[in-house]
Amino acid sequence: MAIVALRAPLKDLAGGRSEVKVDGASVIDVLRALEAEHPRIVGWILDEQGRIRRHVNVFVNGELTREDAPLSADDRVQVLHSITGGTA
């Protein structure tokens, strides 16, 4: 199982949990599984076409990655918003 690490506001949408363990062979699988377990996250990390949002960054074991990257058991997936995208 991969460990998905979340910060606010995503953490709040996952019931206050900063880490969630979910199954999946790739980043997109894990993010979809996260949405299934915590439906309030739907639309926040992935857009409606299944792409990671432009201003969201996903790291696997500290390395920036994209949707189709493979995952191994115990990989740590961090979801952070980027330094762009906000308003002044």
Binding site: P9, L10, G43, I45, R53, H55, S82
Partner: peptide
């Protein structure tokens, strides 16, 4: 609309 996490 969150600039990071999209509109809803």
């Amino acid at each position: 609309t969150s600039g990071f996490f999209g509109p809803r």
